[in-house]
């Protein structure tokens, strides 16, 4: 894959290469954050200086299906050694599903100074770069967050209902989209009673956005071909993305907003585990 700066992204600074991360390990203004699907991956070895932010334990409310609140986010940032002006670089397993999910959650609280390490953890490992099991300790910061903004980049079920007829991108596999399967092949069924998709949604599997050889994002030209020529989007569209629980769709949300410069994209984190269980909502197959 070409250099990030040569791929024509609207915001090339949203992505950094593995080499860039290797060159900035000692930069005090940067905090590297690993976010994984498997909670044992970080303690088994991680990039030197990286802190672990777990999508379930750290970013979600422990009781309700929702995210942490402002005070919870401030506490998380503080104990992670992240100040308001810290540049956060996220990476993780599963082609950065959870890294982009974390970046999206950070954005709900206004921390937009965040980047994704292109290719994620598997690329770092494949390049033979070093990892450590030493867990770093950083001085607590006095982080001040705004109230969580659930309106700009997040969509709830009622928002989706109002959006029917608008642009919706279902990033699940074709079999999930068609209703043939209730979950990704060989992945667990996280409890949907009905199969299919939200009426009018176009199916663009999340993996369309990455080069399968190394997990890096495709160029802007290639992404436009997929999302604009293929799925009929344009940068001024109001778009909602969704998947199963909101992690894969955060990956597509990142591609549309940060790499193609779309101005209004919301991630429906309730996704199919909410829609496919809701009474009375329309479903298309």
């Amino acid at each position: 894959m070409s250099e990030i700066s040569e791929r024509g992204y609207s915001n090339p600074g949203a992505l950094v290469s593995t080499q860039w991360v290797a060159d900035h390990l000692s930069d005090a203004g940067i905090r590297i954050v690993e976010s994984n699907e498997d909670p044992l991956v970080y303690p088994s070895g991680h990039i030197t200086g990286a802190v672990d932010i777990d999508w379930a334990a750290d970013l979600n409310d422990p009781l309700r299906r929702d995210y942490l609140d402002r005070s919870g986010f401030e506490a998380l940032m503080s104990r992670s050694g992240i100040a308001n002006d810290t540049t956060v670089v996220l990476y993780g397993d599963r082609n950065n599903w959870w890294a982009t999910y974390a970046l999206w959650v950070f954005g709900l609280f206004g921390h937009t100074n965040a980047k994704i390490m292109d290719g994620g953890r598997i690329k770092w490992d494949a390049e033979g770069r070093p990892t450590t099991t030493d867990v770093p300790s950083y001085a607590a910061t006095n982080y001040s967050a705004g109230e969580r903004d659930d309106a700009t980049t997040r969509a709830f079920r009622d928002d989706v209902m109002k959006h029917l007829g608008g642009k919706l991108i279902d990033v699940r596999s074709p079999a999930e989209y068609s209703g043939e399967r209730l979950h990704m092949e060989n992945f667990p069924n996280e409890g949907a009673l009905r199969g299919g998709h939200i009426p009018g949604a176009a199916n663009v599997p999340w993996a369309s956005a990455v080069d399968p050889s190394d997990g890096t994002f495709k160029s802007a030209v290639e992404l436009r071909e997929i999302y604009e020529t293929g799925a009929g989007l344009s940068p001024n569209n109001d778009v909602i993305t969704y998947c199963r629980i909101g992690e894969r769709s955060s990956h597509t949300w990142f591609a549309l907003t940060n790499l193609l410069g779309y101005g209004k994209v919301r991630n429906y984190d309730g996704s199919w585990t909410e829609w496919g269980n809701s009474v009375g909502v329309p479903i298309e197959r």
Partner: peptide, 13 residues
């Protein structure tokens, strides 16, 4: 007990 639903399903599998 902190296993997520998806992770738990896979390991139980």
């Amino acid at each position: 007990g902190s296993l997520t639903m998806g992770k738990g399903e896979g390991l139980m599998g």
